[in-house]
Design a protein around this nucleic acid. Structure first.
Length: 471
RNA sequence: GCGCCUCUAGCUCAAUGGCAGAGCAACGGACUCUUAAUCCGCAGGUUCUGGGUUCGAAUCCCAGGGGGCGCACCA
């Protein structure tokens, strides 16, 4: 190559805009408008002394129309590879057969594609290659690009929704001396200078509530959390959580906010709140159904259960429903297991499942009228949990007691049980006002809105085993 | 972690125990209005890896690796 590749291009037009602006240009006519476009060559049709190339860029596609008589370095142009980046300048015309084109006078190679994007019609469909070489997948499969674009729109709609309501966005530490805020196995790393183990966060919760103690009455964070668990179509070891906390609010307020926010985000991403997912209809418009966990279990299992029942009775009922039980479980855990095995798989939603046992909710506040329960809900949408929220536990003594109960479960072998976070208890001692908190799995939300069956589709670079060798 | 499925040319796929093939891409050629252009020609292989069975293995068996799905755990 004699000419060095250019460092910049004065692009004066984009495909999408050209298609609109010259929609009424008649076949065989020139517009008189000279433009410079840039993008990738995706198809080439040579016809002797004429060559037609389809060029694709971010906004769409436009045809490049080259001819030996009017295009510089015509022969060289015909040797471009599919995938090469080029810029081309010339008049906007519509060919006799009706395709809007840039009639190429001058052009430049911007970057060479030394690898092929594969079959020009079917592209790259190998699932492994698509996730490992996302850059190739995105070009080859416009749907992949579209989903990632929709993800961006969803996140920005979340920010807009919360900022409109006076929430402040913050960033809290990813490294935690003790993991907290959820029950999950953490990743561990080591800090050399401090010579100590640090954990990658499994939740955002405890730091955000510290900020409420500090006076940030409406606060949120959209951030990556890390859980050391298996991979599946619905689980990636690092994923994105939205958590928000609102002072003076309770879980009813969180339900109102959740259904409004999800509806707003759905409209921003898809234009509507009426979606399909997995072949079934889904209507996200508020209000969503609100029912207690106990009510829903009664609907689906026919069992009227209560935490007031003796543990043995609950365990017998569970076994009667085919739910495996463990001796160390209390009534709260038994009830939750019964719900998860008999009821949750049959829910489609959207539905707010309200009031969970205190035993399984160490950060939530006691229910004001149901003994043994806390004011907590999960929203089930398209058959999956989308979020988890509660009226936050504000009492430091009770929080400490809950932490200690978790710690002894941990000592007894429950690897996912929480650890005592004494600084968090100290923060509560300064006073946490009544606060509603909400956590949303952003990847799951985006899956829902884009109809994606796999979490990997909504993550640009999902976690994979490293490649063994080769390229 | 366990079970089932899968891996063939750059890409998408055939060949089911008997000479490893096609389409697209690449390469050479023809063609002044193409639209996955068309036509002619040419080239392309550690059939994931290593063992085994067999006269003969892409194909059957064993082990390993990658991937997918399901279970378990979770959001």
């Amino acid at each position: 190559m004699t000419d060095p590749l250019p460092y910049r291009v004065d692009v004066t037009a984009h495909a999408g805009e050209l298609q609109e602006r010259f929609a009424s240009l008649a076949p065989g006519e020139g517009s008189g408008a000279e433009v410079t476009v840039a993008g990738r060559v995706v198809l080439r049709r040579e016809m002797g002394k004429l060559t037609f190339m389809t060029m694709a860029e971010w906004t769409g596609q436009v045809q490049l129309f080259a001819g030996a008589q009017w295009t510089e370095r015509f022969g060289e142009l015909n040797h471009l590879s599919l995938g090469d980046w080029v810029s081309a300048s010339g008049e906007v015309v519509r060919t006799r057969t009706g395709e809007l084109s840039v009639r190429v006078a001058t052009w430049q190679l911007l970057a060479e594609a030394k690898r092929s994007f594969g079959d020009k019609w079917r592209g790259i469909s190998d699932i492994d290659t698509r996730y490992r070489q996302r850059y190739a997948d995105m070009w080859s499969n416009p749907g992949s690009r579209q989903v990632l674009l929709q993800r961006s729109r969803a996140v920005s709609a979340i920010r807009r929704c919360l900022e409109d309501r006076g929430f402040v966005e913050v960033e809290t530490p990813v490294f935690h001396p003790v993991p907290g805020g959820a029950t999950a196995k953490p990743f561990v790393t080591h800090h050399n200078a401090l010579d100590m183990e640090l954990y990658l966060r499994i939740a955002l919760e405890l730091h955000l509530k510290r900020l409420v103690v500090g006076g940030m009455e409406r606060v949120f964070e959209i951030g990556r959390v890390f859980r050391n668990e298996g991979l599946s179509p619905r689980h990636n070891p690092e994923f994105t959580m939205l958590e928000l906390y609102q002072a003076y609010a309770d879980y009813h307020d969180m339900m109102d906010l959740t259904e409004q926010m999800v509806a707003e985000v759905a409209v921003a991403v898809t234009g509507t709140t009426k979606l399909g997912y997995g072949g079934r209809d889904l209507d996200l418009s508020p209000p969503w159904r609100r029912a207690t966990l106990v009510e829903l279990v009664a609907e689906h299992s026919g069992q009227e259960l209560s935490l007031e029942m003796p543990v043995g009775e609950l365990a017998r009922r569970a076994e009667g429903l085919g739910v495996p039980v463990e001796d160390r479980w209390g009534p709260g855990k038994l009830l939750l297991e019964i719900y998860e095995k008999t009821t949750e798989p049959h829910l489609w939603g959207p539905v707010f499942v309200m009031d969970y046992p205190k035993e399984v909710s160490p950060l939530a506040r006691d229910h004001r009228s149901s003994p043994g329960m806390v004011e907590r809900f999960e929203a089930v949408v398209a058959g999956r949990e989308l979020c988890n929220a509660f009226s936050e536990l504000t009492d430091p003594d009770e929080q400490l007691a809950n932490f200690e109960a978790q710690a002894s479960a941990r000592a007894a072998g429950d690897e996912e049980a929480m650890v005592v976070d004494t600084d968090y208890v100290r923060a509560l001692e300064y006073g946490l006002p009544p606060t509603g908190g909400l956590g949303v799995g952003v990847d799951r939300l985006v899956m829902l809105l884009t109809g994606s069956e796999a979490i990997r589709d909504v993550i640009a670079f999902p976690t994979l085993r490293p490649e063994v060798a080769g390229d």
